[in-house]
């Protein structure tokens, strides 16, 4: 099916700004679902609040636009109630790692079979460009007019530390690579965490004099490297892309059978 067959065209035009990276990430997600041959009726998309969280409304699946930071908690209820459904959870960086940080680490700890996709543009875009937990040091935002003094989260390290069994990162520029990672993440049995680096020219780019959406895309191309690359050894400021964790660990919905059928010590 063409990408448009997965869209609710009734609800277009979308609200994303010109140059926003979220659209290409949504396209990568649609292509991943398409190539996995998932049935529309078996896919649930759950989001929180923010620019990225408007994504589910545009998609022709079962879609839940929930509360700021709480998408993984809503998704946990859906997955536990109907384990056979594929549940994908797009979130923003503030959504996932500030207000929703607690739910993120506990979903990773449980290894519940959800795919979290963090569209990380390092800013609160919907509210007009405030500092988020992934805003780099010294960056300008409306709440860091003197430059940011809060150290940023490395979301990949956060997910790894919390126990996610699949952890990957790519960018809006690397659309084909991101699609592959999303396919692997969705197919992975357990908690999958995919960081999709996105650009916000309207607030982050403009305030930090980084140029247009095209310039941000160029930055993703030039300032990121595949995991383990030689370039990274020479320039540690480059950001690695790739699949950082892919391991087999019992998923929460699989483990739940011990709760319904007996005792986990019998396993």
């Amino acid at each position: 099916m063409p990408v448009k067959d997965y869209l609710r065209l009734r609800f277009f035009p979308h609200l994303w700004c010109a140059g926003c990276g979220h659209g290409t990430i949504m396209a990568s997600l649609i292509q991943a679902i398409e190539e996995l041959n998932l049935l529309k009726n078996n896919v649930v998309i759950v989001s929180g609040i923010g620019c990225s969280s408007r994504l589910p409304g545009y998609l022709d699946f079962h879609t839940l636009h929930s509360l700021h930071g709480r998408a993984l908690a809503f998704a946990t209820g859906i997955k536990m109630a109907r384990p056979e459904l594929t549940v994908i959870v797009p979130m923003g960086d503030g959504d996932a790692s500030a207000i929703g940080g607690n739910h993120l680490i506990h979903a990773a700890r449980r290894n519940i079979d959800l795919t979290a996709v963090v569209l990380n543009n390092s800013i609160y875009g919907m509210t007009g460009g405030q500092n988020s937990p992934t805003t780099p040091l010294e960056a300008r935002s409306t709440t860091t007019p003197q430059g940011n003094i809060d150290p940023a989260f490395d979301l990949v390290e956060l997910a790894k530390g919390a126990g996610a069994s699949f952890v990957a990162r790519s960018t809006a520029y690397h659309a084909a690579e991101l699609k592959q990672m999303l396919m692997k993440g969705i197919s992975h049995r357990g908690f999958s965490f995919v960081e999709a680096v996105s650009g916000c020219p309207t607030y982050y780019g403009r305030r930090n004099k980084l140029g247009s959406g095209v310039d941000l895309m160029r930055m993703f191309k030039d300032r990121t490297v595949p995991m383990g690359s030689e370039k990274k050894k020479n320039d540690p400021s480059l950001i690695e892309r790739g699949i950082f964790v892919e391991k087999t660990r019992p998923s929460y919905t699989d483990q739940y059978r011990y709760v319904t059928q007996g005792d986990c010590k019998d396993s």
Binding site: L64, R70, F74, A75, T76, G77, I78, M80
Partner: peptide
């Protein structure tokens, strides 16, 4: 049955489950 990480998560997860 699931014990969630806090009451916020408990309330959100039951809403998700109700929709199924």
């Amino acid at each position: 049955f699931i014990q969630m990480e806090d009451e916020i998560a408990s309330m959100c997860s039951i809403i998700g489950a109700s929709l199924t």
